[in-house]
Computed example of a mutant assay.
Amino acid sequence: MLRSPSQNGSFTSPGVYLEEMFLPPLPAFLTGVPVFLGVADFKENKNGDDRQPVKLRLWTEFTSKFQQLDNKSYLYSAVQGFFLNGGIQCYVLPLLSKDKLSDALEIAEDMTGIDLVCAPGFTDPNDQQAILEHCTKLGDRFAILDAPPSLNRPQVDLKTNLVGSYGAIYSPWIQIEQVAKSQSTQYVPPCGHIAGVYARSDREFGFHRAPANLIIEGVLGLDPNSVLQNTNVNQIRSVQGRGIRVWGAETLSPEDNWKFINVRRVFITVQRWIETTLADVAFEPNDYKLWLRIKREVSTYLESLFRKGVFQGRTTKEAFYVKCDEETNPLNLRQQGQVFTEIGMAPAAPSQFVVVRLIHDSTGVSLMPSVPSESKV
């Protein structure tokens, strides 16, 4: 018989006791939420074509719902590593085979609750370029990519072909504490563990902090044959006396403004907030009342981020600006049904404003890079 403990939590006699446990409530606007793409199938009978993402908040939910179809899928270890490193919510989008990646990316386009994309073990440059282009196109998510498992072939293509600020790549592969029985190798790609580090860093320090110099839980060692030293590859290192840590926080972009992961993720998070909060302005009259509303609501949100240390500067004027008026919305643009808002932000890493243009129209909200301001902080 299951019995509840006494009010003070003590147990007065031997036996089996039932303790009710509740998952902690999620923040209103959650960051560090990945979608995992990998070869797997549902344990319960489902339509084979029903490849829809499944939300998970516990590692045991994955093992109860999915089975791997490929011993090199690495989905098992990636999701396990995510929760082991502090992740609290993710999605799994199962593929029937690795050649179905493009189909999975198309399905993922409609997802709104994520800001990270992980495809553990998809190390072919063409696959990774497709993931980068997916993230760049949507502008509301960031790709965590794995370096190849070995250096038996030239890797210069990673430097020349993979370019973009909406993703980062990590090396080397890692040896984990518990390997799925179906996997034939002791080394696994690191993206799932790294995604967990992102989530933990967001929760403890904020999404504006670079997810680097942080320990990776559940890792026994590093694969010496997959260490990749190319430019813009973030290393995982064993630091004497300090464990195995993420050592690097660079995107795959050659542009100085978008060099750091935390800078790109600040803009991603701001865009996600705007898309959620200002979605209803699409059909409002395009006049000064609408411009004032957009400026007021965006400024209020950015001011709240300023108080959390997201931006540089001693005052809000040094940290950001929002411009939505007749100058940014001349008559010809208004006649096209678009509302242009210019937003300048000074994220914590670089020493200059990065400026984007915020566009509202009947299709939704989008951000477009603009000419960087020369204003220094």
Rank of each mutant, 00 (worst) to 15 (best):
Q89K: 14
L252S: 08
S184G: 12
G15K: 11
G164C: 10
A130N: 09
Y198S: 06
K43W: 12
D127I: 02
M21F: 11
F353G: 00
F260S: 07
R357A: 03
R334C: 09
R141H: 04
L56R: 02
K308L: 15
A349H: 09
V117C: 08
G113F: 10
Q229T: 15
V270L: 09
L292M: 10
K46A: 10
L101F: 09
L214R: 13
S182E: 13
E217M: 05
M111A: 08
K98Y: 07
F311P: 07
G9T: 03
R314E: 15
M368L: 13
T60P: 00
A348H: 08
H208S: 08
N8Y: 12
K100D: 15
N85H: 06
P125C: 09
G81W: 03
Y74R: 02
I261V: 13
K295E: 12
P34H: 08
K376E: 11
L331E: 04
P350Y: 03
T363Q: 14
D99A: 12
S77M: 06
N47I: 01
V298C: 07
L132F: 07
I294L: 13
I114Y: 11
S253Y: 08
E327W: 11
N213I: 08
P148N: 06
Y17M: 02
Q52D: 13
R200V: 02
H134V: 02
L132M: 12
R57M: 15
V188H: 08
T328V: 06
T136E: 14
A195L: 05
S226G: 09
E177H: 09
W247R: 02
L228H: 06
T185I: 08
P154Q: 00
Y166T: 10
G309H: 06
D287R: 15
E177Y: 12
P172G: 10
T341R: 01
V355Q: 03
A319W: 05
I294D: 00
K376T: 12
G196D: 08
T31S: 11
P94I: 00
F36G: 04
K317R: 15
Q7F: 09
T60D: 15
F11T: 02
R334P: 00
Q235V: 04
A108K: 03
P369H: 09
Y321C: 01
K376L: 14
V117S: 05
A210N: 11
K289P: 01
C90K: 04
E20S: 10
K98G: 04
D157G: 11
I131S: 05
I294P: 00
R264E: 05
D287C: 07
G87N: 04
F62C: 03
G248I: 04
S299Y: 10
I176Y: 01
V270C: 05
F267C: 00
P148A: 15
H134A: 04
E61C: 09
L367P: 01
Q52G: 07
V79N: 05
I114C: 06
V35I: 13
R3F: 11
Y321E: 01
A28M: 03
